[in-house]
Amino acid sequence: MTSQTKTTGMTSRTKRTGRSLSQPRPGPLQYLVLGLLALVFVYPIWWAVSSSLKPPADIVRDPLSFSLGSATLDNYRAMFDDVPIGTGFVNTVLVVAVKGAMTMFFCPLAGYAFAKYRFPGKNLLFGVLMLTLMLPTLVLVIPLLLEMSQLGWVNTYQALILPGSIDAFSIFWMRQTIAAVPDELLDAGRVDGASEFGIFARIVVPVIRPGIAALGVLTAMNIYNDFVWPVVAVNDESHQTLQVVLSTLAQNVTGNRVGADFATVWGELLAAGSIAMLPVLALFVLLQRHFINGILAGSVKG
């Protein structure tokens, strides 16, 4: 049997199995380690959800046990009565959608300009942009709040959406991702008569799709979990985001219900936390493949 025949046979077997020869099959020890790690990460989520279904007294008396026979939705009913979590969800979805759309539109364009164009002061401007990444968020809170006050935007959606919608990290991420796109592809588009925006939309965006997907997941999670700026910029209950509503849950429970004990507060806290983490978990599960591909896109040289 010739070497060519052996190679052909190995290639056909690889296609049938769907695995590359450079990817060895995980052994039992690796499966065991992965299973233990999965258990460590999943157990807190399971405990929070199962505890939210227990009577408040059982949460304090025996926090580690769970019985389907004692499962109840009383914590959820009480939580919806005591806390405006629906309003917080609506406000959060609005902020994530609008602010995320602005980030996903403008930051790739800015990254494209830094990666593929030459203009005066480019390196200086990019260096200043990188310096802003070193500034803690708390340093910018007071100047931004004063700016929002001068514009009359305190307790408005503009204050929640516009600050930070075009951030330095997203521009840097897109710049590094787009820099790996060959210049020959762009030159070919120009030869065919495509406009500069057409080159970006039809050539660059399909190539960097994994990086854009990863940025989308990171952006959505950061906006969804943001607490510092919303709690400063908004004190009106009708504009509060979900994280701000959750932070005041204990005060609302004890204030709305006379004689509310420690167990009751914990039950409603766990119920609200279980609902709040569902969108993030669903987002990551649905987009985890694109997220991982985007993270690893620049780690291997083609």
Rank of each mutant, 00 (worst) to 15 (best):
G69K: 06
P163L: 06
A194H: 06
T14M: 07
L270F: 15
A272H: 04
Q176T: 10
Q4T: 13
L278M: 15
V128Q: 07
V207A: 13
F119N: 04
F227I: 09
Y76K: 02
M102F: 12
S12T: 09
V93H: 05
T241D: 02
L94F: 12
L160T: 04
S274A: 15
S3A: 15
V228D: 06
T137A: 15
L287K: 12
V96W: 06
R202M: 09
T254F: 11
F105P: 03
T11F: 09
M130I: 14
M174Y: 13
H290G: 14
P210Q: 07
P143I: 11
Q176N: 08
A282E: 06
G111S: 03
V234F: 02
L144Y: 10
P28W: 08
A78F: 01
G18E: 02
G298S: 11
K99G: 14
L124S: 07
V128D: 02
K301P: 07
V234H: 00
L125D: 09
L242V: 03
W173M: 05
A180G: 13
Q30M: 07
A101N: 05
A159I: 10
M104Q: 08
R77W: 01
S12Q: 14
Y76V: 05
K54W: 11
P63W: 10
A71T: 01
M79Y: 03
T264L: 12
L246M: 15
I203W: 04
L162G: 01
M130Q: 12
I295M: 12
A159E: 07
L215F: 04
S70W: 12
T2G: 12
L281N: 01
L37V: 13
T87Y: 04
L39A: 15
L145N: 07
V60Q: 13
W153P: 00
P279N: 04
L286D: 04
A220C: 13
M148H: 01
R289P: 03
S274N: 09
V228P: 04
A38K: 10
A48L: 15
P84L: 11
L269P: 02
Y117N: 08
P44G: 02
F197V: 15
T177A: 05
G127R: 08
A271P: 05
G164S: 09
D183N: 10
S22K: 04
F200I: 07
S195P: 00
M134F: 09
A272L: 11
G259M: 12
K99L: 10
G111T: 09
G255A: 14
I142M: 14
L140G: 08
P210V: 09
F80D: 02
F262H: 14
G100A: 10
T103C: 12
V154F: 05
A260T: 09
A272G: 15
V228L: 15
A38L: 14
P24H: 02
N256R: 15
V83D: 01
L125Q: 10
L286V: 15
T5G: 07
P230T: 10
G294M: 03
L39G: 11
L73Y: 11
F41N: 08
V95M: 04
V98Y: 01
F119D: 10
M277H: 05
